[in-house]
């Protein structure tokens, strides 16, 4: 059942993104920023956690989940370190994804070559 909801919720969040692309003048970069900031806001309001419990990767893999991750990280860091946690929490929580992308980027730049699209 978890798999079904992951597929449905993940696909649904992508459809929201597609509707924003097709129906508004928002560029993809703006939509991604909107998703991440919305993820932080929804998580702060306590609305994203239930979705993540329910849909698993369907909620955490889309960029809204990245925002949720940042917000959660900040929350627990503030609990432990006070105001300093507001600065350290986000990056600590997101470190895995960002560092993985960064390392992959460096490796790919060494291994792969830019190719024509035709």
């Amino acid at each position: 059942m978890r798999f079904f909801w992951a597929f449905l919720v993940g696909g649904g969040l992508c459809v929201i993104g597609q509707l924003l692309i097709d129906l508004t003048a928002l560029t993809p970069a703006r939509i991604l920023v909107l998703f991440v900031v919305s993820g932080v806001a929804l998580s702060a309001l306590g609305w994203y956690e239930p979705l993540a419990d329910f849909a698993g990767a369907g909620a955490t893999v889309p960029l809204l989940g990245f925002g949720h991750l940042l917000a959660q990280g900040v929350l627990s860091a503030v609990e432990r370190h006070g105001l300093l946690g507001a600065l350290t929490g986000g990056f600590s929580a997101a470190a895995g994804g960002i560092a993985a992308s960064l390392v992959c980027g460096v490796l790919a730049s060494l291994a792969a070559r830019s190719k024509d699209q035709c």
Partner: peptide
Amino acid sequence: FVGGTICLIGE
């Protein structure tokens, strides 16, 4: 379908 599939793989 593509977005859902990626999330499914993630799950």
